[in-house]
Write a protein that binds this DNA or RNA. Structure first.
Lengths: 249, 249
DNA sequence: ACGCAGGTTCCACAATATGGAACTTCGCCG
DNA sequence: CGGCGAAGTTCCATATTGTGGAACCTGCGT
């Protein structure tokens, strides 16, 4: 067998098995792993037992294999923000190429909208660096995505609007229903005059919305007639990221 | 070398190295791994290269080792609730042994309090199964922990109290400051007459509060004089879980 | 009771993994 | 600027491990 490097065939084989289990998303039977890995049953059995003994896989009562406690420890103590950013980066770069505008990724956290990554605009008149900037979510496209999908609760009390494009609460609720229907959200000069943004959701494997991705720029470039096309593009890129997270539409 | 089983020494060795990297929390140098694992430098180098090739570790620019992309994939697409429950289970069992009362674990999610695990009371007069039950957080011990640590925002508007033990908002704010000071929260017949609960926070590696653990039961058993002692016990078990998450006080 | 699928164990032997030595690279210090 | 030491990599003779075919075990369905 062709080896990338001498003296690690057993480790390579065990790792290949491990990758099959971790990337599967579903429990894996011994037989299905034997078929996929292409090794003798005895070899596969021995390698799986070594992986189990070392907490890299675990078996459920039916005997099927799952990622083991070492993965759980990593996930439980690791801030996955970096992982999400890493997975989302190609889609964000793609959006940047396609539009030349500022691209952002945000997550809902402690009931607030948190920007975790940004690809800057190629225009001089671009949006600010939004990371760490606190904005009223109801007048942002990203915030509307989170409100529409109920991963953030719309605050009670008076909603303040920084521009004169104020909405009543019923108007906003109708807007949010529209976001769910068409898949994307728009904020047109609601946060600042001359600033437009479109956003779409990112779903986890279980379908829940865990992030949103957006494009923003000047209304002199992002015309009203372009918005539906941009919205469709954002939905598509949001779907791409969701699929990387194991979501199946 | 004593082997648990024939034919997997290389996998066991590679897995031991991997565990050192994943459980470390910090980047690991090649030299520090050689020291800890106790193998020849050439063996360690070869095993680490195999782990890197198989995406189980990665090296940063300085050459130090980190958990690799396979862990990131797992974390990004895996709901870590199950992992947190698994890590917290021994501490919850311990609290159940010590008190005999209902023990709960909750997380803040989308600005709301979500119960994710419970160990039932050994008493007949025990608390309900809280999982999935929506309660007003301001009159629960768990909710007070989240409000006190600002991982949930106290709602504007009138606070409704199901019993006659209502508090004014300033009274509640003072209570929350007290929660931070002494480390634990108390709800004494605020949710229901005859029901008492004490809760303490669980911290992630970065210090942020990601969960809370509580004990609840009838005021006929949980007397007022016992509350401080129970509070201290909960703080201790909360700290135990936090340490498993990589938090260092 | 029998057959079969899923999975485990045994062991002769082929071939891999080992580690000591040699080597490379880089930063620090005189 | 050269020497030195630490960190890390590569080489290869050889010891010993990992392999897979065969035999075996277990549970379930007929």
């Amino acid at each position: 067998m062709t080896a990338t490097q001498a003296g690690s065939q057993a480790v390579d084989r065990a790792a290949a098995l491990l990758a099959l289990v971790v990337e599967s998303g579903d429990p894996r039977t011994f037989t299905s792993l034997v078929e996929d890995v292409g090794l003798a049953k005895s070899t596969t059995s021995r390698l799986l037992q070594a992986l189990e003994r070392n907490r890299l896989v675990r078996r459920d009562r039916a005997g099927s294999f799952h990622p083991g406690p070492l993965f759980a420890v990593y996930a439980a103590r690791h801030d996955t923000t970096g992982d999400l950013v890493e997975l989302a980066q190609p889609a964000m770069d793609r959006l940047s190429e396609l539009t030349g505008e500022t691209v952002n990724l945000a997550v809902p956290r402690a009931g607030e909208l948190v920007q975790i990554a940004q690809v800057d605009s190629s225009y001089l008149l671009g949006a600010t660096n939004w990371l760490g900037v606190s904005v009223p979510p109801h007048c942002t496209a990203l915030g509307k995505v989170f409100y529409a999908h109920r991963v953030m609760a719309l605050q009670k009390g008076e909603l303040r609007w920084p521009t004169d494009r104020a909405m009543t609460r019923p108007q906003l609720e109708r807007e949010l229903a529209e976001v769910v229907r068409r898949g994307w959200a728009l904020a047109w000069e609601e946060l600042e005059e001359g600033l437009a943004a479109i956003a779409a959701p990112v779903h986890a494997a279980d379908g829940s919305v865990v992030a949103a991705i957006s494009v923003s720029g000047a209304t002199t470039r992002i015309t009203r007639s372009e918005v539906p096309g941009l919205g469709a593009t954002l939905v598509e890129q949001g779907r791409t990221i969701s699929q990387l997270l194991g979501h199946q539409p």
